[in-house]
């Protein structure tokens, strides 16, 4: 950039190089229908999901089945027990977090649900958490239950044997992606179209 020519009045003073412009905006959120149903369940220490016409159960529900693009009209209660499908061990304190490090943030597939939720695993050393481990919800004290998923403090091992065959969402059609190097590119037909029922090398991994 070419040299700036300043007028005499500001030529010999310390130039401003940055400016603070704090800004606060206030919002009032509403939860919407599906989330309200879910949080109403939480207040009663129940985990409520919603079922889509195709049978999928979503927890927490967001009102739409993203595969069908349709509303999920049926409320269903799922178990408070599930299986770890993946996880990471966190060794850093994040904003607003009061966790003792290391802690485990895991994907947990609740029995009866089709999609893993993300939550904390406690009451077990971090290095002993495993994919396939069975875990159960631990709630806050009754007096502290609020309409937030944080009312489930964390999950802890149930002591059951690991579910070594846990269906990891998405893995069902993994084989359909193969053979690129042999010259066969994947197509939409690799998976079953939930609207038409066409395609799919497996039954959408439901097995």
């Amino acid at each position: 950039m070419a040299e700036i020519v300043l007028p005499p009045s500001i030529r010999d003073v310390e130039p401003v190089r940055s400016v603070r412009t704090p800004a606060q905006l206030d919002y009032e959120f509403t939860a919407g229908d599906a989330t309200t149903r879910f949080l109403n369940g939480i207040v009663n220490k129940r985990i409520i999901g919603q079922q889509a016409p195709g049978g999928r159960v979503y927890v927490p529900p967001r009102g739409a089945d993203p595969e069908l693009g349709q509303p999920t009209p049926i409320d269903v209660e799922v178990a408070q027990v599930g299986t770890v499908t993946s996880f990471c061990v966190v060794n850093l304190q994040f904003y607003g977090s009061v966790m003792e490090i290391p802690y485990v943030s895991a994907l947990i597939l609740l029995d009866g649900a089709d999609l893993s939720i993300m939550h904390l695993i406690q009451e077990i050393p971090a290095d002993q958490v495993r994919i396939g481990m069975r875990v159960e919800a631990v709630w806050r004290d009754d007096a502290d239950i609020e309409p937030t998923f944080e009312s489930v403090r964390y999950f802890r091992p149930t002591g059951e044997p690991d579910d070594v065959n846990v269906r990891i969402p998405g893995e069902g059609h993994g084989t359909g992606l193969g053979s690129w190097v042999g010259g066969v590119a994947p197509t939409e037909a690799v998976i079953r179209n939930p609207r038409t029922g066409q395609g799919g090398t497996t039954e959408g991994g439901d097995a």
Binding site: R56, R62, D114, L115, G170, G174, L177, P186, I191
Partner: peptide
């Protein structure tokens, strides 16, 4: 958030490449 989605080898990425 789809039960069908493979977060390791996302189908969308493969189809985009194809």
């Amino acid at each position: 958030l789809s039960a069908e989605r493979d977060t390791v080898l996302p189908l969308g990425g493969a189809l985009c490449a194809a």
